[in-house]
Amino acid sequence: MTAVVDPVSQTTGPVASPDVERQAAKERRRRGFLLALPAYAYLLFFFALPLVAVAVFSFATRNRFGGVDLAEWNLDSYRRLGDDIVFDILLRSFGLALLTTVICLVLAYPFAYFIATRSETVRNIMLVFVLIPFWTNFLVRNYAWRLLLGNDGPVSQVSQFLGLGEVRILFTPLAVVIGLVYSFLPFMILPLYAAIERIDWRLVEASRDLYATGRQAMTKVVFPLSLPGVIAGSILVFVPSLGAYVTPEILGGAKTTLLGSYIVSQFLTARNWPAGAALSMVLLTVMLTTTVIYFRSGGRNL
């Protein structure tokens, strides 16, 4: 369209000198910068600066009074990551986060495939019913499981009624995994759905025309095409699971301390801020690494 209009405007309109054009471009840049400035300044001061503060504190030393000495920088807090207690917590947290991610993927993939292959009306209705729990208060959703899994709770009552005996899941790692899957399953479903919905189904038909079995079409065509969704969903489940605090506090027991709870305890009870800051840096590193992997693998903005 512009190709048709351009010659006309060039012959009839005033001829812009390069100088005027440069001025206009400069003016636009200035205006753009001014528009961004309030949010930019806000995030630099109230987000980037706090981020730097965590990094600085992670190299600091805790003094005798529970305060923090910023003067002498050292790596003590990072060396503590190798301590048995901390290492166990890191290992357990990574394990549970990984388990949560795998369970979410197994549940969400067929589910997302199912939604993506429905008619538009059915699809929209099904999506709304995924979005409602997605945006429902996080604390309340975790509390609901506390109620369900309690010793006299409905799950246990049903199991006793069926003659299977009392269920004692609450305060075990299993309860934490259930809570995490429940909390983050929509984070897996939505990117998977978006990826599968975008698939050009003619490719699948072509593969079938070339005598691919249903299974082959699934594993060799559909799955590879949905890979960006798989990666995005896995990151969106893994990272918050790793740093989870509310879920393990409500559903987990004293013996199953996870990274998130441990970091919080370093700040609120143990008052070892440098150690807590160093562990936060670990979380941050995992987050940044996975995000870079995602964008490197050709992922788009979520």
């Binding site: 987000f47 706090p50 981020l51 503060a53 965590v54 504190f57 969106l236 990272v239 918050p240 790793l242 740093g243 605090y245 509310v246 990274l259 998130g260 970091i263 919080v264 700040f267 801020w273 807590g276 800051a277 936060s280 979380l283 941050l284 987050m287 995000t291």
Partner: peptide, 13 residues
């Protein structure tokens, strides 16, 4: 994308 706990620690410090 930042985990809640990390952001909480940042703001506290």
């Amino acid at each position: 994308i930042i985990p809640d706990v990390t952001m909480a620690v940042m703001m506290l410090l």
